[in-house]
Design a protein around this nucleic acid. Structure first.
Length: 487
RNA sequence: GGGGCUGUGGUGUAGUUUGGUUAUCAUGAGAGCUUUGGGAGCUUUCGACCCCCGUUCAAAUCGGGGCAGCCUCACCA
């Protein structure tokens, strides 16, 4: 039998499609292409992720708002690059009843054109700055034929923050804060490793001056973008006539940023990065059920005592703040119940049978290490608290190791192709991520079966030596860029 | 947007080539009994040919169109 890691590399698609159905995460039977129903097991965790972001945004001084889903056509057309970038994938509302609307409405593919329209009313004085807002939203994009639950839907969920600042430097500081927010939640809380890249000129958000994006690696060796933060400069503020009176009584135009962590996609990455051959492994804090108690019945034994013990344990654990459930289904053999909760990603399992009553102990199974341990009644809660504390750390460090092992370097095209073939995120010396590097990018893409230049690292400074050359054109390499296929 | 494959109970499937009886098997769900330390057994009940149009005495089966899923190329913050 192949190892878990091998299984997911060779058959990641199959693994993902299968777990989506078996664990009842998303229901694909809804009859609109690219749009799925999120079932309770995934919805619970997705909501937890929503709350992690909401709590953090509240701490960082963002105010939550709820913007309309519909965006009038005239708003949408105000920023030229934005229109060009998004037009092909916009859903339009064109009718009411059997009548045609006088003006079409877009189902938001992103909400700059809703926020900035309102910002022009809301912003009056320098005293209003910085203006930091966010919303939790569903987004509609008719962007591809190849849809996939969680990763690429025609409707998906995200947060978008929209912020205004007096200076460009202030706006850049916000982008840096966005990167820290991403680190705190996506990496530390959810155990998903990533690198923030500055995207090349040709791969920026439509309407942005700079785009910084967090990429993680999926088990099949594809890079997957989980969050982006953009410097919008004054493009949208100018297009929407957003201005304020400064201290010096001059009318000035603020600088905008926006940040968009894709929540449904983060969930997809979460299950993909941590999952193994048995199924899901969910971080302790976001698991719908954290502890499952499985009583093992015996005929002729005193099952009443056993049941009472399970209920007592559950009640005590509940008081300690754990999400705990008892599976007292007598129709199912233990093996079936065990593997079911392992497949669902429940972090901890307590097995109690008649023998344990005599010895005052239980068997405790932990999903981060897939190991069992016998624990006495008296030490049980202490042991559970200990595992609860280190559970997500273990998932994270396993994911970090896997991510590290995917980083690679290449100094020739041949090496690059070889490393990409192994599913790596490959660093190469490259001439430029400005417009003048675009031809090299086109060549690189053509010669690597569609690999993408993800950009230059934001987390560390790294510059090629003076004599290093772009592996495509042979001119001086000004940057180290990272290359991978895209999910 | 292009190419390929597919669509049968809730799920997975047989049957489709060569049109013809009451549509196969497993799983699931409901009722009952027995079981339970890593995917139990028996009895019984429920439940399906993706949609529309066409060909035909007759369509799950053949033809056209639509919708949906999977794979792939292109596109894509």
């Amino acid at each position: 039998m192949v190892s878990d890691e091998e299984f997911k590399i060779t058959d990641f698609n199959e693994w993902f499609n299968d777990i989506t159905q078996r664990a009842e995460l998303a229901d694909l039977r809804y009859n609109v292409k690219g749009i799925v129903v999120y079932r309770p097991w995934s919805t619970f965790t997705i909501n937890k992720i929503f709350r992690l972001f909401e709590d953090t945004f509240d701490e960082t001084g963002h105010e939550q708002v709820i913007m309309p889903l519909l965006i009038p056509e005239e708003n949408f057309y105000k920023e030229a690059e934005h229109v060009e970038g998004f037009s092909p994938e916009v859903f339009w509302v064109t009718e009411h009843g059997s009548e045609k609307l006088e003006q079409r409405y877009a189902l938001r593919p992103t909400s700059e054109t809703a926020f900035y329209y309102m910002f022009s009313y809301w912003l009056e004085s320098y005293r209003d700055l910085p203006l930091k807002t966010y919303q939790r939203a569903n987004i509609f994009r008719y962007d591809t034929k190849q849809t996939r639950p969680f990763f690429r839907g025609r409707e998906f969920y995200w947060f978008e923050t929209h912020n205004l600042f007096e200076t460009h430097d202030d706006s850049f500081a916000q982008a840096i804060q966005d990167m820290h927010i991403t680190e705190d939640i996506v990496h530390l809380e959810l155990g998903i490793p990533f690198i923030f890249f500055k995207r090349p000129e040709w791969d920026k958000f439509a309407g942005a001056e700079d785009t910084f994006a967090a990429d993680t690696m999926l088990p099949d060796g594809k890079a997957c973008q989980v969050a982006t933060t953009h410097l919008l400069g004054q493009r949208f503020t100018k297009a929407f006539n957003v201005k304020y009176r400064d201290k010096d009584e001059e009318t000035k135009i603020p600088y905008g940023t926006c940040y968009g962590p894709g929540i449904t996609r983060i969930y997809g990455v979460l299950i993909s990065v941590h999952g193994d051959n048995r199924g899901l492994r969910l971080p302790f804090e976001v698991a719908p059920v954290q502890i499952i108690i499985v009583p093992l019945y015996f005929s002729g034994e005193d099952n009443e005592l056993l049941e009472k013990l399970c209920v007592d344990f559950a009640s005590d654990l509940d008081k300690l703040g754990f999400r705990v459930k008892i599976d007292d289904n007598r129709e199912k053999k233990p093996k079936e119940r065990f593997s079911f909760y392992e497949m669902k990603g429940v972090p901890l399992r307590i097995e109690i049978g008649p023998k344990d009553l005599e010895t005052s102990q239980v068997v405790l199974f932990r999903r981060d290490l897939n190991t069992k341990k016998t624990v006495s009644f008296t030490e049980l809660f202490e042991e559970i608290s200990k595992i609860a504390n280190e559970f997500t750390d273990n998932l994270r460090s396993q994911a970090d190791d896997s991510f590290e092992s995917r980083l690679s370097t290449a100094s020739t095209k041949e090496e690059l192709r070889k490393e990409l073939g192994k599913g790596k995120l490959v660093r190469i010396p490259f001439c430029s991520i400005d417009t003048d590097g675009k031809d090299c990018y086109a060549h690189l893409k053509a010669e690597t079966e569609g690999a993408e230049i993800r950009g230059t690292r934001m987390d560390i400074e790294e510059t090629p030596d003076a004599d290093e050359l772009c592996i495509i054109c042979g001119n001086k390499a000004r940057e180290y860029v990272y290359v991978a296929k895209s999910c």
